[in-house]
Structures are given as C-alpha cells and as structure tokens.
C-alpha cells in the first residue's frame, strides 16, 4: 500500500492527539480521581464493640505474645477489640501505670498478670472501683479481681520437683532463677517446688535469684549462682526466658547439657533448646488458651452478666526435654 505524506502526517497528528487525550485522561482518572488517602478514614464509632486491654509484664515476650494471640482471636469472634500493653522492659512501676491509664481510658475490661506487688494491687483496686472488671492470667493475685485464668502454679511447681527427683541419680544442689516480679514468698512456682523437695535428703536449694524477665539477666544470675555455689548441678527457671538464659550462660563455658535444667513454657527459643536436650524438662502451659478463656469469661460477664468462677485452672503438662516438640 502506498502511503502518501498526507496520510502519514494525518496518522501522526492522530497519534499526537491520542497522546494528549491519554495525558488528560490520566490527569482526570489517575491523579485527581483517586483519593489521596486510600481507605483512610476510620470512623470513631465503637458501637457494640467491647474493648479489653491486656497489660503484660513485658511487651516483647514469646509467652505473652501467645496470650495475646489467643485473646485477639477470641475477641474477633465475639466482637471484642483487644489491645495489648506492656512495658518495653519489665517494670512494676510501668505496669501499674499502664493499668492506671487503661482505667482512665475507661476500657471495658482489663486482663493482666497478678503480681504480688502493692502498686499493681492498688492499680487493680482502682480499676475495679471505677467499675472495670479485671481478670488475672498466668499468675493470680487474690483480691477484688473478677477471676483468675491460668495454671495451678503451686501444683505445677511440685510436679516439676517430682520430675526432677525422678531424673536424679545422686545428690542435687539446685539454683533457681525466677522471672516473676512479685516477692519470692508469693511465687507459687518456687513455693511448690521448694515444698516438694523440703524433706528429700541430698537435695538442697542453694540460691534463688530474680531475672527481671530478661534472658540476659537470667544468664548473669545463673553465672553468679555458679560462682558462689560451684557445686550447683541443677537449674530451675520459672519462665520461658529464665531457662533460655541459663542455657545460654552455660553455653559460653561449654557446659550446655552437662547440668540439669528444668524450665517453664516450651515457647520460642525454649522449645528449640528443649528439643536439643539442653533443657531437660519443661512445664508446658497453654498461654493461648489463657488469653481466649479470659476474653470469653469477661465478655460473658459484661454482656450476659455471667459471673465466672474466681479460679479457672488450665491443664499443665510436664514434658521431658526431647519429647517437648
């Protein structure tokens, strides 16, 4: 086909016209037509949604992360918005402050760890006085709280001690690293453990130290115990991070696996170390279940006025290292 210059010029002009039209089309539909803040506006109308706040002793903690997951999942099912608060570093002061803020913000329900500490108790008292129900999880702190959801820590401590005795072939000198922030006397996990071993000969508890819920501190405390009591051959950590810290401390000296380690909670790293045999046995709890159960009880209480049992124990298993996943 022969293309005259005229035809070519016309085609070119048509193409240019098309370009111009495309640019303008883009302007209209691509630039000014699209909203600047896509899906932006969130209406502040909570309607029927209840709002619960979990105040954890620490924000980044694998165990509490599971509590949160269970609570949020259950909340989504029953129409409850669950927020998760916690100090960046474990601190009684900050935890109490967060509890106070939740109270000031007039949330519908508070889920927290019952620490035997006057500040926390006071904060819980204040919340309950303002008409906000409080459920304690993981650790109870008897008082005006609505209910406790969690393990029977005293019994579980006893079972950990019994498990230790089963594994022992000789005398044992025990170092305890505990993660809970309250006083030792109120720590059921230590109490149960200690009571179970009280009358056993050749088994003694050399030292009890607090880890402040960080694995570094736990490791340092384990080191300190071993320096002060070189004959320690068993460690007992009462939270997931404690056992992990102990094993890490042992690893720096190449002692991992040579000492007996008994821990709580096969979550995160703890599960892995248990699997490799560096943690000999763990007390297996169900943190997700704690979260979801707490939400369920609170929701039933607020919406249907069903007052829960004050104590709701959840099952605990003692898992030997290798069998724990």
């Amino acid at each position: 086909m022969k293309l005259s210059i005229r035809t070519i010029v016309r085609i070119l002009l048509a193409l240019l016209l098309g370009t111009a039209a495309f640019g303008l089309f883009n302007n209209i539909f691509g630039v000014i037509g699209r909203p600047l803040l896509a899906g932006a506006t969130q209406v502040v109308d909570t309607g029927e949604t209840l709002r619960f706040v979990i105040v954890a002793p620490q924000y980044d903690h694998p165990y509490w992360e599971q509590v949160r997951r269970g609570a949020v999942a259950m909340g989504a099912k029953v129409g409850v918005h669950v927020d998760f608060y916690g100090p960046r570093r474990a601190s009684i002061d900050e935890q109490a402050q967060l509890l106070d803020q939740a109270t000031m913000a007039q949330v519908d329900g508070i889920i927290t760890q019952g620490v035997h500490d006057p500040q926390i108790d006071q904060a819980i008292d204040k919340a309950v006085n303002r008409g906000i129900p409080v459920i304690t999880v993981d650790t109870d702190s008897p008082g005006p709280r609505l209910a406790y959801v969690g393990s029977d820590n005293y019994t579980a401590g006893q079972r950990a001690a019994q498990d230790l005795l089963k594994r022992l072939t000789g005398p044992a000198v025990i170092g305890i690293i505990r993660g809970n922030l309250g006083p030792e006397q109120a720590d059921d996990r230590v109490r149960g453990f200690r009571d179970a071993l009280a009358d056993v000969p050749d088994v003694r508890i050399a030292a009890v130290e607090t880890s402040d819920l960080t694995r570094t501190a736990a490791g340092q405390q384990a080191l300190k115990i071993r320096q002060e009591h070189p004959d320690v051959n068993v460690f007992y950590g009462t939270t997931a991070l404690d056992a992990v810290g102990v094993v890490q401390s042992l690893t720096t000296e190449g002692m991992e696996g040579r000492l007996m380690v008994i821990g709580w909670d096969d979550v995160g790293e703890a599960a892995e170390l248990a699997g490799r045999g560096f943690i000999d046995s763990v007390v297996h709890q169900v943190p997700e279940e704690m979260g979801s159960r707490a939400v369920t009880l609170m929701e039933a209480y607020l919406r249907r006025d069903l007052r829960p049992q004050p104590i709701n124990f959840l099952p605990v298993q003692l898992r030997g290292g290798v069998e724990a996943k």
Binding site: L37, A40, T41, Q42, V43, V44, D45, T46, R51, H81, D83, Q101, M104, A105, Q106, V107
Partner: peptide
C-alpha cells in the same frame, strides 16, 4: 474528630476522650 486516618488511632481517640 469523629474519624481518624490511621486505623490504630481509633481506640487512641477513644481513650483520649474517656481520659
């Protein structure tokens, strides 16, 4: 404001009002 731009802000706004 009855609306917020950030989804997380909804409950914070709520908190502010209640506080």
């Amino acid at each position: 404001p009855t609306s917020t731009q950030h989804p997380d802000s909804v409950w914070i706004m709520h908190d502010l009002n209640n506080m």
